[in-house]
Design a protein around this nucleic acid. Structure first.
Lengths: 339, 339
DNA sequence: CTGAAAGCGCTTACAG
DNA sequence: CTGAAAGCGCTTACAG
């Protein structure tokens, strides 16, 4: 790596050919450009010796492809998204793409700005876990024909590819488990948004209660706003007011974290005094909270199928053709021995 | 956002001016280009109405600046790096930069390739938590004069800016705590690499033992290779062979995770049968393992100071001037009530 | 087989 | 005050 960059012009000068010949050789087009293998080898050797590295910006400008994928998630530090980011990195690398990530923090305007930014940067594709109001900005983005895959969350009204975990099924598994175990007063703590992945979980909760012949009690449900500072206190208040609860279902992982803190503060014993189930959990939960039951999302599978859905759109001969395929992966119920 | 992109040419045509005028206006150079405010307003309005978005690739090619920062870490899904990634995202955004991340998995060649890739992509700066053998590729990178900041790990022989946590201090704090509490047979489990951040922790362990008048016992130290598949089994074996241990110090978080699994398997009680201290921990550890003592790294501060060291190098009038500044942050010992 | 030229979308001297 | 031109580093028709 030299201080001043080597360009194909430099190589061309030394090899005494014209830059386009260098370009053809370095792009493996010797055959179609019918360049002698002697010359081709000479050029390759010079490029190698000089430590030539192509300028991706120039390539992108010329070809219109950046080989960058925009990843937009709620928060990259959330273990679920962090694990997903790693799996996506590995998976997308196989296709020679790289990821530029953004955290929306569930802020629709922030997300819209990030879409715009990534589009300006000529992102070749988008993988988005959208916040609840991003349907508008995603709809706009769809008009550009750029490949998009939604993950984790989706909008039923948008015809766009998505990889989801069966949210309904996940809560159903968890609820059936609790009910089988004889729990009757089951609370449900979810995020206060009107977004399909969350409402599906809520509907499953209510349906499963009714299937078990238990009338849902409005008081046993708590919806917490993402932006609320002190989630722990909200949950503490809820638990105190509903001492009849014998089990609680957290619809997402960060609420469960806050909830476990609240439970610790209140010195409630898990699972003897209160059974706990958490959706959206991950390895660390399994390790550190052997007493809570988990609805686990198959993160590696999510990444694999999201990338597949994305590159399918690249491959299409009649590119760009929007894929509308939806992949629904099965969640897994993880019951620890002690619960 | 339209399907076909709007360029300054389009705007120029409609405004009946030449593209350079549009460029000047849109870059806030009306003053120096002495363009009438009437014309300037007209151009701005047209750009707005047409939804003009500049092509970052073209800007980058022309200006030589990509506004991309390359982030290279061991593993983006490691909670320490995931939290760092979020803090860096927020911090660097203030300067209108974006992050392209890469996980080395402690593989030097992989890391070298990632440096090369990011350099090709014209990254304006690098934030790197290097693996042990990356000193060569970083030395090469330094020759290009591109701003670099090392985080978490460094190479004493390289004159490059870095933000570190005082590793020695961290282990010292933990060891003094254990010794005060009366523990005598303290084990130390670290990563089998010859890298400053790790060796400093190890030296602190041995020094603190000696300071306390305890002769270090070679058998009480375990070094585990990063690539080893089954770290849990290695730790189980170590713990079984050293039943005399009354405390164990994990030099890094993923070893502690494996260790806690091993400890659970062996049905050893923390802290009554074995006290546990973990370096490099994070919020989740605090939450789920109230019984282990933590040496905690100030992640937000690390991000802030790394970004500061980086942008300082951008700001330099005599750019590029390599900063050699090293910031050493203090770790914190977190002792939970129950330990 | 090989080379000259155009152009991707910008910005930046420079000319008038 | 405003416009014409060059050029960032590539790739891609096209001409011979």
């Amino acid at each position: 790596m030299k201080s001043s960059r080597i360009t194909i012009k430099d190589i061309a000068r030394i090899a005494e050919v014209v830059p386009s010949t260098v370009s053809a050789v370095l792009n493996g087009k010797e055959k179609s450009a019918r360049i002698s293998s002697a010359l081709s080898d000479k050029i390759k050797k010079i490029a190698d010796d000089m430590g030539y590295q192509p300028n991706s910006m120039a390539v992108s400008l010329r070809t219109g492809k950046s080989r960058i994928i925009g990843l937009i998630v709620e928060n990259i530090s959330n273990p679920f998204f962090a694990l997903l980011a790693k799996e996506l990195e590995d998976e997308i690398y196989k296709y020679h793409y790289r990821i530029l990530y953004c955290s929306t923090e569930n802020n629709d305007e922030k997300g819209a700005g990030q879409i715009k930014m990534l589009y300006n940067r000529q992102a070749d594709g988008f993988i988005i876990a959208p916040s609840s109001g991003m349907n508008k900005s995603i709809k706009q983005l769809m008009q550009t024909k750029v490949p998009i895959v939604l993950i984790d969350r989706y909008f039923p009204e948008l015809e766009v590819a998505s990889t989801l975990v069966d949210n309904y099924k996940g809560v159903e598994l968890g609820m059936k488990h609790l009910i089988e175990k004889g729990y009757k007063n089951i609370g449900f703590i979810s995020v206060d948004i009107n977004q399909a992945h969350m409402t599906e979980r809520e509907i499953a909760y209510r349906n499963e209660l009714e299937l078990a012949g238990i009338k849902p009690n409005e008081k046993f449900q708590l919806k917490i706003n993402y932006t609320i500072e002190n989630k722990k206190e909200a949950i503490k208040k809820f638990l105190k007011e509903n001492s009849a609860l014998d089990a609680v279902f957290f619809a997402t992982n960060y609420l469960c974290i806050a909830g476990l803190e609240a439970i610790a503060d209140l010195e409630i014993q898990i699972p003897t005094q209160l059974a706990v189930i958490c959706f959206d959990d991950h390895d660390l939960f399994h390790l550190f909270s052997p007493k809570i039951t988990a609805v686990s999302q198959p993160i590696a599978e999510i990444a694999k199928s999201a990338v597949k859905l994305l590159v399918n759109q690249f491959d299409t001969k009649k590119y760009p053709v929007r894929s509308k395929e939806q992949i629904l992966l099965a969640p897994k119920l993880i019951v620890r021995a002690s619960s």
